[in-house]
């Protein structure tokens, strides 16, 4: 790891977060893209100081190779993120085609609940004093 790369990863997280925290879905997706770049970078940094590519052909000293496990994990993560990003893009497209905007609005039911009023229900004093036993 190095401080520069760690700082780059952190900045990617920061910028990504800033972009995610609003309502245009296409921009949120870009923010998520930045964050996952940051996360992938972070995993590779977590593997240590790097090294020569972990391809053990003749003449490669196994002691000098970069930690291969974070690379493999990141490879998996990249591809998974790609799949999910594609899905999210499709969702943004659907959202846009259906509603004419890619803004993520507030949940209407939540807003309705927050405005609801509950009057105290008083009993009707003139209620019929009779049971219907039809």
């Amino acid at each position: 790891m190095s401080l520069i790369s760690l700082a780059v990863a952190a900045i990617l997280f920061g910028v990504g977060t800033y972009l995610i925290l609003q309502r245009a879905l296409s921009r949120i997706i870009i923010g998520l893209g930045l964050v996952s770049h940051g996360a992938n970078l972070l995993i590779v940094i977590g593997g240590g100081f790097g090294g020569v590519p972990p391809i053990l052909s003749e003449g490669v000293d196994p002691a000098t190779v970069a930690d291969p496990l974070p690379q493999a994990m990141v490879l998996t993560a990249i591809v998974i993120t790609f799949g999910v990003t594609a899905l999210l893009l499709a969702l943004a497209l659907r959202s846009y085609l259906l509603t004419g905007t890619d803004e993520v609005e507030d949940d209407p039911e939540d807003r309705r609940v927050a405005r609801e009023v509950h009057p105290v229900v008083e009993p009707d004093p003139d209620e019929d004093m009779h049971e219907v036993v039809a």
């Binding site: 591809v79 799949g83 594609a86 893009l89 499709a90 497209l93």
Partner: peptide, 13 residues
């Protein structure tokens, strides 16, 4: 799978 994915995504989107 990766080829199928690329194909499916391009065709759909």
């Amino acid at each position: 799978v990766v080829v199928g994915m690329s194909l499916g995504l391009v065709r759909a989107l």
